Simulated assay, not measured.
Amino acid sequence: MTAAPSVVADDVLAGLLARHYGLSGRIKVLSSEVEGTAEVTLPDSTRLILKTSTQPEAVDSFAFQSAAIMAVEKGTGFVAPRLLPTQGGARIFEHDGVSGYLQTCVTGTPLHLMPRTSDLLLDAGRALGQLDLALSRGDLPAMARPVLWHVGCWSRLMELQQYLPSGPVADAVGAAMAAFLKLVEPRMGDLPWQVTHNDPSPFNMLSTDAGIAFIDFGDGCWAPRIQDLTIAASHSVGDPLRPLGGAEDLIAGYASVLPLSQLEITLLFGLMKARQSVLILVNYWRAQLFPDNAAYIKKNVARAEQGLSILSALNAQDGRAAVAEATVTA
C-alpha cells in the first residue's frame, strides 16, 4: 500500500496476452490502487480484464484471486467474473518479472451510482451471503498473506491518525477505534472464520441483469466471516433518519441467507464503526503519499465520514439492538 500502482506498458501487455492466451485486442488501462488493471476488447467486442503487476508479492495475491474466482464459479445467487486459464492451463502467468491473470469483464452498474433503496440493499445483502457461502467451501492458496485491510491490522492503524485534519471526524475515528480495541478485538478469535472477499464496497458490487455481481478479489483473505457483512454494511449507512442509516436492509438480506450468531450480532455495530474509521485513516494517509491519485484513493471517504457520523449518534447498546432487530426482519 506504500507503493504506487504497478504500471506495465501497453505493448508489454499485448505481448503477454498473445504469449499466454493466444489473444489480441484493444487495451485500455483502468484506474487501480496497487495492481495494474487493463480492459481488453477482442475483435468480436468481447471484453476481458487483464490483471498484472511487477511486484514480487503480487504472485501470491494473484494466486489467491484466481483461486477465489474459480471457487465461486459454481455459486448461486450472485454474479462474479470467470477465470480464463492460460494456454498451458495455469490460473496465472509469470514472465520476465510480470505476473498476472485474465478474467471475464462483468457488465453492470456499480452500486455507488444507484439510489440506496431498501430493495437494492436487501438484494445486495442476500447476494453477499451467497458469496460467503461459496467462499466457505475450502482453503485457498495465499489466503493468509499480509493484507493491510485485514481486521487483524486495524489496531495498528491508529498511528495514521496524524494524517487526519483535527475536528469532528478525527474525534469520531478516535472514539470508534478505542471502543473497537476494548470491546471488539479481544473477542475476534471466537467468531467463525473463513475465506472472505474483504472489500464488498459499492465500487466492487454491480447491479446486472443476472443479479448482484462482485468484482476485485484483491483484498480477499482468511478472516472472520462477518468481515464481509461489516464492510458492505458500513458502506450502506446514509439515511440519518434510521438507526443504522439504512444498513438494516443489507444486514437483513445477509442474515436471511447466513443467520448471525449472538456474538456476531453483538460485535457488528462496533465493527462497522471501526471499518469506517479504518477506511478514513488509510485513505487520508495514502492520498498524501500519492497526491496525483488522491481523488481515486479517497473515492469512498465521504461516504465513510457520513456513515460514521450517523452511527456515532448511537451508544453500543442501542447499536446492538438495532442490529438484532434487523436480523429478526430477515
Results as ranks from 00 to 15, higher is better:
M1N: 12
T2P: 05
A14K: 06
G15W: 07
L16P: 05
R19V: 06
H20T: 05
I27K: 08
K28P: 03
L30D: 01
S31V: 06
S32A: 10
E39I: 12
P43L: 01
S45G: 04
L48V: 02
I49F: 02
A58E: 02
A58I: 03
D60K: 15
D60S: 13
A67T: 02
I69G: 07
M70T: 15
V72G: 05
G75Y: 03
G75P: 05
L83P: 00
L83N: 02
D96K: 11
S99T: 09
M114K: 13
S118T: 10
L121S: 14
G129M: 09
Q130D: 04
L133S: 14
V147A: 00
V147T: 03
S155G: 13
R156P: 14
E159F: 15
P168A: 11
V169K: 07
A170S: 15
V173M: 08
G174T: 03
A175M: 05
M177I: 12
L181R: 13
D190S: 12
L191I: 06
T196K: 14
T196C: 12
P200A: 05
M205E: 08
S207F: 09
A210Q: 06
I212L: 05
F214N: 07
D219Y: 05
C221D: 06
C221P: 10
L229N: 08
T230G: 05
V237L: 10
G238Y: 10
D239V: 08
G245M: 07
D249N: 15
I265D: 01
T266C: 15
G270D: 01
L271T: 07
A274G: 10
V278N: 02
L279K: 14
I280E: 04
I280D: 02
V301F: 13
V301W: 14
G307K: 14
L308Q: 03
S309H: 07
L311V: 12
S312F: 01
L314I: 03
Q317Y: 15
A321W: 06
V323Q: 05
A330Y: 00
